[in-house]
Each structure stands twice: as structure tokens, then as C-alpha cells.
Design a protein around this nucleic acid. Structure first.
Lengths: 190, 190
DNA sequence: CTAAAAACTGACTTATTAGTAAGTAATCGC
DNA sequence: GCGATTACTTACTAATAAGTCAGTTTTTAG
């Protein structure tokens, strides 16, 4: 049985992911990571030869996470509202720890990312958008939700509300995100 | 008459503002600015002793711009829809040149900004939100717009749609911003 | 128990970063 | 036209950045 005794690589990924959502890709260094994990600079380079490799790995983690969430929420019997709340609650937790959402963070860094990472980012974004779109469609079919326009356009509206909502909350305060959260839900069940 | 013969300071501010919305505060250096403007590193430091001073100046510029827009749009006789379009068109232009909006960019950099700049950023954000809120209220009173909830909450929804819309457009393409733009307008006149 | 593979450390390099100080050139008020 | 102010340049520094490589420790598989 392969029980992991060392999890340095995992720790680097977790810390890197948090830093991207806290200060952004270009505001932290390998030295910052090494210091916090009590390892040496070269140890970080051993697992991720360059910073683009690290970014790539972090995007992978988020893809894995959303793939898992998609599978869990694919189960029948769960109300569409519960499914949507799983997503929305993730954003509420971001507000609590003053992080911005990964997609918002990536879009800011986007112009400084190499092409291979950009392509992977597209995969992540489509994964999230598709998950929400499916949930909205299902909710509408079941009579839980009602909305005008396509499920895709409604998805774009809701996800931009959430993404920029957590960003705005950093500046104007958490109450504004709460307002947005309630508005999203109110519109959907009106 | 004070005709300016040198406008280096203005050029630095304009370039810095563009860079913040293109690659982010932590992804460009004074050397980048000096190179592009054909001046020396120290000339940038002469006008803006440190990078926080530069950021401060750039936020000031945006405050000035939105103050001017607010004054121009305060004139009676202009339909609320025309006023809102002035704002929305600014975001469409951002999509065209692949920049993200200043508020979105700032919120990403936020944790790396000193306190005095953060305070000024709050002023900018409230200025923009107030402008849109007034426009929505006016449009509702005139019968141009109809929307549920308060003008403030509707402002938050629209501005987050626009802000994250331009960010998303970088990754998934300009068509998604166009979808968002149309949805905002459709909901408002429904 | 041992050899090989994996996971590091130590000691670097090279480039770039923000920032400074002293001197020079351009412009302005008078 | 002249002295003062403004706007720079030249020439630095000290710190930090990403990244490399040779050697050492740790872990794992047989």
C-alpha cells in the first residue's frame, strides 16, 4: 500500500495555490514558498523546475477539484439548488479568507502566462461553466429555477457576479458579496 | 498660458495605467517604463519616488476620469440608457485591447498595496458605483429601466458582470462579453 | 541488507529589482 | 540674460529573482 511519507510536492502546490489567490502569481517567489515550508529554494525547483511548471500544476489541482465536484453533483436526487449552493459556498469561503477566485486571479496573470498554461486554463474555465450550466438547466427543468435567456448566458451572469463579487468584497467589504449572493438566488427562484 | 513643454510625468502615468490593466502591478518594473519612454530609470523615480507613489498617481487619474464622466453625465436631458452605455462602452473597449478593468486589476493587487493607496481605491470604487446607481435610479424613475431590488444591489450585479466579463473574455473569447453585455441591457428594459 | 531511485541541501550564477546620490541640462520667473 | 527651480542623466548599491549543479540524505523495492 502506497502510503505517502513525504508530501512536499503537495504542500508546495497547496501553498502556491493559496498565494496565487492571495497576492497573485507575480507577487511571490520560490524563496517565499521555501521559507514557509522550511525547505530550500532548490527543493521547490526539484519538484517544479520553473514557475510556469508550478502554475501548470496548480491549474491541474483546480481541474481535479472541479472534476470531483462535477462527479459528486452528477448524482440524481440532489436538488439543483443544493448543487448551486455548493458552488456559491465555495465563493463565500473565499470572501472569508480574503482570497479571490482562481479564475479571476488567472485572468489577471493571463498575459504573463505561457501558451501551454493558457490552454489548460481554458479547460478549467469550461469545466466550471459547464457544471453551472448543467445545474441551471436541470433546475429549470425541475421547476426549481426560472430565468430568461439561455442557461449559458445565465451562467455567465452568475459566475461573473461571484468572481467579481469576491474581488469587490476585498475593497468595499463583505456585505457587498452577501448582497450579490442573495440577489443571485432571488432572481433564480422569482 | 501654461503650455506644457514636457509631459514625461503624464506619459509615465498613462503607460503605468495601461500596464496595470495589461499585466498587473507586480509584473512590470520601472525599467520597463523607462525603456518604452526612452528615458532613464532614475527619471521615473524622480517623478514617483517609489512604486506605491506611482500606483497612487494612477488611481488619482482614474478618479479624475470618473469625476469628469460623472459631471458630464449629470446634465439633464440625456437618457439614462445613453449614460449607462457610456460606462458599458468603456468596458467593451477594454475587451478590444485585451485589458482588464482598473477595479478588477486593483482587487488582484490589493494585498500588495500600502494602506494609503487602499484608502484611495475605496474612493474610486464608490465613485463608480455611485455613478451607476444614480443612473439606474434615474432610469427607473423615467420608466426607461425596470429591475427588482435596490438600485445599489442592481449596480453591484451589473458592475460585477462587466468587471469579470472583461476578465473572462481574455480566456474564453470576446463573444462571452458580448453575451453578457446584451443580457445586462435585456434585463434592464424587460 | 543493499542498490538504485527519489528527495532533497549547499553553494553557486546571472539577471533584474527598487532605490539613491551627485552632477548636468533645460526651462522659467523676473 | 540670470539665478533658481525643475527635469533629468550617469553611475552606482543592496536585495531579491529565477534557475543550476554537484553532492548528500532518505526512501523504496527486491
Amino acid at each position: 500500500m502506497a502510503v505517502k511519507t513525504r508530501d512536499t510536492k503537495e504542500a508546495i502546490l497547496q501553498l502556491g495555490a493559496a498565494l496565487i489567490q492571495e497576492v497573485g502569481y507575480n507577487a511571490f517567489s520560490y524563496a517565499d514558498i521555501a521559507k514557509k515550508l522550511n525547505i530550500k529554494n532548490a527543493a521547490v525547483h526539484y519538484h517544479f523546475p520553473n514557475k510556469a511548471d508550478l502554475y501548470d500544476g496548480i491549474v491541474d489541482i483546480h481541474i481535479q477539484t472541479y472534476t470531483l465536484i462535477s462527479q459528486e453533483l452528477a448524482l440524481a436526487g440532489i436538488p439543483a439548488m443544493k448543487k448551486l449552493e455548493v458552488i456559491i459556498n465555495r465563493y463565500s469561503r473565499l470572501v472569508d479568507c480574503d482570497h479571490i477566485c482562481i479564475i479571476g486571479a488567472i485572468s489577471s496573470d493571463y498575459k504573463t502566462l505561457p501558451e501551454n498554461v493558457r490552454a489548460k486554463v481554458e479547460t478549467l474555465v469550461e469545466l466550471v461553466l459547464t457544471l453551472v450550466e448543467k445545474t441551471l438547466l436541470e433546475g429549470k427543468k425541475r421547476g426549481e429555477f426560472s430565468f430568461a435567456g439561455s442557461a449559458r448566458s445565465r451562467t455567465l451572469l452568475i459566475m461573473t457576479n461571484l468572481s467579481a463579487g469576491v474581488q469587490l468584497a476585498r475593497i468595499t467589504g463583505k456585505k457587498d458579496f452577501e448582497t450579490i449572493r442573495k440577489s443571485i438566488l432571488r432572481e433564480l427562484i422569482a
